[in-house]
Design a protein around this nucleic acid. Sequence first.
DNA 1: CTAATAATGCTATAGAATAACATTATATTT
DNA 2: AAATATAATGTTATTCTATAGCATTATTAG
Lengths: 170, 170
Amino acid sequence: MLTNSRLAYHSHDHKRCVSAALTRAKTLCDDSDARLTPIREAVLRTIWASHRPLGAYDIVDQMALNAASGKRILAPTVYRSIEFLLAQGLIHRIATLNAYIGCPFPGSHHSDFFLICRECGSAAECSADQLNIAVEQTAKRANFKVESQVIEIAGLCPECQHENQQGGLK
Amino acid sequence: MLTNSRLAYHSHDHKRCVSAALTRAKTLCDDSDARLTPIREAVLRTIWASHRPLGAYDIVDQMALNAASGKRILAPTVYRSIEFLLAQGLIHRIATLNAYIGCPFPGSHHSDFFLICRECGSAAECSADQLNIAVEQTAKRANFKVESQVIEIAGLCPECQHENQQGGLK
DNA sequence: CTAATAATGCTATAGAATAACATTATATTT
DNA sequence: AAATATAATGTTATTCTATAGCATTATTAG
């Protein structure tokens, strides 16, 4: 099973996640003649600020804060960057949250799903053959031809399960 | 595998789907002391007009048409009915479409998923142990505690695959 | 019958996403 | 380098989805 759940839910040197994501993004865009402009890169960096899916307007606000000097990047521009990053496979949309999250392993073709913690908000991306096979087989039994799939699982991540136990009834 | 895919994708006597859904709804609401008011029933009937997920504002429009005489039912009222019907398990929300669809087998506890045809818009609900087990096991490997899941699969239903073949390159 | 609770009506607004068109930047061709 | 085409961004307005807040009406409980 391919997953970034270790990183997503536990404290770690997140700067490495960000720099790795940006490096991969540059490489992939170079290879496919896609233009990772400064704005697009800034949007990607903003999304990668954490492992929590981020709403489009949160991105707008964050970018305004970070570039406190210049002019605001407005919603349509952010949405265009999102569209670009989605097309490149550098980010994913979380339908149940209307939010966006960085893809930890772009480039590798994968049918992915997300484990989203309702407590801390962090989401891990996973790819499991077993699940993809189950999807294919059940669809096949209905003679349905699968083209895309959205699998979003909500619950408690390891850390937040632990904290809930410690916290008792609170 | 529990599914209504036969009905959802193929022509059938849909009036029976509607009356069955309404009968079940009344029974379930009676049993749980939930009040299936005329408006709520009308919303449920509107959603059951087809096997295609229906947007909240489409419901608003349809209800205005049907009750052409009296006064319009406005969005907040429709959303309240939706909230009620979701709570009773009589309908489901399709996150990828921001739309709502009748549950063909309410009352039975089931972790369900949807096969949504991008061509005709019809969606079948399915419940497959194999898929639920796969979800549980993959989540377990990440030490993630599952509470709810959204699985929405898009593609082509049997009918629309067939039509595409017949239509050739068009 | 009255008080309490639930449901609906109604207005406004929040939140997510895109349309349409102007402007600027980048790439391509000559 | 200049001219042209293409891509990206700026800007304003709007559409679509969903809910907040409060008034009114209906239903239930005592």
